[in-house]
Amino acid sequence: MKAYQIGSQTGLSSLKAVEVPDPEAGPGTVIVKVKLVCLNHRDVRIVCGEYGPKRDESCIPTSEGIGEVVTCGEGVSGFAEGDRVIAPHFVSWTRGPFFPGVFARDLGVTQNGWLAEYVSVPAEALVKVPDTLDDKQAATLPAAALTAWNALVEIGKIKAGDRVLTLGTGGVSIAALQIAKMNGARVCVTSSSDEKLDAVRKLGADATVNYRKTPEWGPAAFDALGGGADIVIDTAGQATLTESIKAAAPLGRIVIIGALAGAATEGLPNFGTIIGKNLGLHGIAAGSRDMLCDLVQAVADNQIQPLVDRVFSFDEAPEAYAYLDKASHMGKVLVQL
């Protein structure tokens, strides 16, 4: 089959197109014919050697996609040829709270991911896609949107009337905006682009802040939300945490998801505010299969449409990586087989 491998992980040029044998269905596994692949920031960082230790050069990347069941291995029931399926990339995290062992079985990192004609996935991780969702709606759910769901619903305990701040306009942030609005929240979004801020207002954002024009954007977001954010979706990490703390309301929950802005240049000068506001800081990593089932049902019930920035062909996958790396996109970047 046609596939891509992460190669030497020394930069975007490390991604290489290859021909490899088709995977075979072992006990408890399902072979899925891939239809759409979604790229995430970590996919870029992996081929650049900037996502933990270097991995096996033959690893097939990407953690998010949708496909159709082709073959079921011994002991698998509940799936039939042609079923459309998705799966969280931590395939051993099926239910219950997070446990560190989930990192050992991670699609696109420790085992082969979606950027190929076929992928092998444990049956226990798969989620059937209802007919009411099209491929693009479903393909964008298992990684970025699932992370946003975990942050808002599982950790944030979002409810109608809550105030939410989400940083940036990438896949997690746009999904967070849509999930928050679905739950009746008021949402503020940050970006360095007025054009992107105009676009998120059309998607339902109640307030926006341009962090390039307002470097100390935390107080601006606090005021825009009329008293701070009950939930902050911090996709940028250490470098933005100081402002996220300023933006949070008393008893707010700051959910730390990524490190898009790099490392902090100094410590937290407002460290005492964490205590003064009684804030909760919570790091998360994606979510479980049970969470994904809940998300799929919510998206189907509310017919949420993902924001897809651009779709590349399979042969254009390196261009898709380069496009995502420029960070000029909004929402999701897809690869179609």
Rank of each mutant, 00 (worst) to 15 (best):
K16D: 00
S63C: 14
T147S: 13
I274A: 03
E154Q: 14
L197S: 11
V153G: 07
G65S: 06
A87T: 01
A139V: 13
K196G: 02
S120A: 11
A3G: 04
I274Y: 04
G96T: 03
F79D: 02
N278H: 15
A249T: 04
G272M: 14
L295F: 10
A104Q: 04
S173E: 08
K16E: 11
G331T: 11
I179L: 15
D198M: 15
D325L: 04
A199I: 00
A317D: 12
N302F: 02
E124A: 12
G272F: 14
V232K: 10
K33I: 01
G218A: 14
Y118Q: 13
F98A: 08
Q111K: 10
A139R: 04
P269R: 02
P100D: 07
R163S: 13
D43H: 06
L167K: 11
L268W: 07
I46R: 01
R253W: 05
R212N: 15
R253F: 06
I257H: 07
G227T: 04
V200Y: 13
V109L: 02
G204D: 03
S313M: 05
K157C: 09
P23A: 04
P142Y: 05
A259I: 13
V232T: 08
I179T: 02
D22Q: 12
L260W: 07
P100A: 11
G184W: 05
A17N: 09
A148V: 05
D22M: 07
G227Q: 06
E316Y: 01
W217S: 09
E117Q: 14
K277I: 09
F271R: 03
A207G: 02
V119S: 07
G65Q: 01
S191M: 14
T71I: 14
S120E: 15
F271G: 06
P21L: 07
N150F: 08
V70Q: 14
Q178G: 01
R201Y: 08
A259N: 15
Q5M: 08
D234L: 10
A145R: 11
A224F: 10
V189S: 13
L126K: 01
G287F: 09
A199H: 07
L225M: 10
D131R: 09
V127T: 10
N40C: 15
M291H: 13
G108A: 00
S192I: 07
A224H: 06
S8Q: 07
S244D: 09
I179C: 06
K128P: 07
H41V: 02
N40K: 04
L177Y: 03
A175H: 05
D301R: 09
S193N: 10
R95M: 04
I245C: 05
A205N: 00
K196A: 01
K213I: 04
K332D: 14
P53C: 11
A264V: 08
A148Q: 09
L39A: 14
V311C: 09
L225R: 01
G283K: 11
L225E: 09
L251S: 10
G262A: 12
Y118I: 00
W149S: 03
P269S: 04
S58Y: 12
V121W: 06
K181W: 02
A205W: 04
T10C: 00
I284Q: 08
V335K: 13
Y51L: 11
G267T: 06
L115I: 11
G7M: 02
D315I: 03
E319P: 03
E50Y: 05
G204W: 06
